[in-house]
């Protein structure tokens, strides 16, 4: 049992399970964000609903942070072990059947981490665009809540932010295009009967997430989503 805790295979299982939890978060986060297409009332009420969870929201956030930390710390441990496993590099080396995504997981992960920090500073803590962070909206039930709807629209009217977002979402999907199939292999699921489906499902999920997340800035740029008079 002790050997199990020290082994690289356990580390890989930690990567897989924490990664799967993060994918779960990505799906939930996207589902919530897509409410923007339902208009300011929908998304602002959703945001308030999350805040109303109170202590539960705090626990969810702590859980998410712990998951991210596990994923990152384990990846650093493994990447370091992998680097020291080949102290002298080849003069000439070709990859034979590996994909770019599979060879650049650490780099894409690092890019995503940098973006997550920026994204939190932008939409969660309002440090990037403080001028759009303090808007208020009056819900149908009369409660005054933070205006997420106009904050998102103002945010994505800035081309720099749209490009950053586009790059980050692309890196997330590149990361996932390897991660999902790889997770099954690490958990010991590799069977001729299911490999095709697993590969397609992984690519499909990565593509759906990309389209879903990008639909918001694209919708704003195309003018489908625009500022309403509902906000103050």
């Amino acid at each position: 049992m002790l050997g199990f805790l020290r082994s690289t295979i356990l580390s890989k299982i930690v990567m897989t399970v924490s990664g799967a939890a993060i994918v779960g978060f990505l799906i939930a986060h996207l589902t919530g964000n897509l409410l923007i297409f339902g208009g300011p009332e929908k998304i602002n009420a959703y945001g308030q609903g999350l805040r109303d969870l109170g202590l539960l929201l705090l626990f969810l956030r702590i859980g998410l942070v712990v998951t991210f930390v596990l994923h990152i710390v384990t990846s650093i441990y493994l990447a370091d072990k992998n680097r020291t496993a080949r102290p002298v590099s080849y003069t000439k080396k070709k990859s034979i059947q590996s994909t770019i995504a599979s060879r650049t997981m650490f780099f894409s992960g690092l890019t995503i981490l940098t973006f997550v920090v920026y994204h939190l500073l932008h939409f969660t803590y309002g440090i990037v665009q403080p001028e759009f962070y303090h808007g208020e909206y009056i819900l149908h039930d009369g409660r005054t809540v933070p205006d997420i709807y106009s904050m998102m629209i103002h945010g994505f009217q800035n081309p720099f932010i749209v490009i950053t977002y586009l790059l980050a979402v692309t890196f997330v999907c590149l990361h996932l295009s390897h991660a999902i199939g790889s997770a099954f292999q690490t958990l010991g699921i590799n069977h001729t009967k299911y490999n095709g489906i697993i590969k397609k499902a992984g690519m499909g999920l990565a593509t759906i997430l990309w389209l879903g997340y990008m639909s918001i800035p694209f919708g704003i740029m195309a003018g489908v989503l625009k500022l309403t008079n509902g906000g103050h």
Binding site: S7, T8, N82, Q97, S98, M105
Partner: peptide, 20 residues
């Protein structure tokens, strides 16, 4: 597996160049 780790081999990241 424990001996493999102890010898200083890296971990598997499922790139599958080994198979090829």
């Amino acid at each position: 597996v424990m001996q493999m780790d102890e010898e200083g081999f890296g971990s598997c990241t499922n790139t599958y160049d080994c198979e090829a």
